[in-house]
Amino acid sequence: MKFGMAIDVTRCIGCHTCAVACKMSNNLPEEVWWNNIRSDGGEAPDTARGEYPGNLEMNYYPVNCQHCENPACVDVCPTGASFKREDGIVSVDVDTCIGCASCIAACPYNVRVLYDKEPTFSMDFAVGDYDAPEHKQATVGKCTGCANRIDRGEVPACMDLCPARARFWGDLDDPNSDVSKFLAGKQTVRLLENAGTEPNVHYVK
């Protein structure tokens, strides 16, 4: 069993539906995003790359925890709070995490957040899933693969419905999973492949 995701970059329109679904379902604090939509043209959202008119590109890469095969974050965690589940999901145990941020330094993908202050929320009640992860000061937060949802048979929030039908997930070891079927025969890109982390999020261009 190996949890993995695939994103069809040719279909992704950078609408942020997956990012907001994550924000809602996981009751994320203010300014915290576990799934970030990056424009490859520049830092400003929706920036194109190239020369008008004939040589232009505009692409998006939704980037969340890559649920790596060799997660650098797990290696460096001094308390074992960062761990990899048997299904491949990389997660953080908030009760063990001491907020030392070693994992943030080790992770090449910049997808972890240190709650260095008491997290604040734009809503004054908890939204999303009743069992959304706890966001505790002095711990590190990150994409949990929506383990809480998966464990009760639901799909990760970001995979619930992509308007562009650009997102796929499932067991990469199972050739019949949605993600394996989508990836079969396709050339893929993984972020920072030379970092040795063996990410399990595949991008198809």
Partner: peptide, 17 residues
């Protein structure tokens, strides 16, 4: 409401990756 939280993942661009 509206307390800004520093050092979040949202601040880094894709270009770095």
């Amino acid at each position: 409401r509206r307390t800004f939280l520093k050092g979040t993942a949202a601040t880094a661009g894709f270009a770095a990756l």
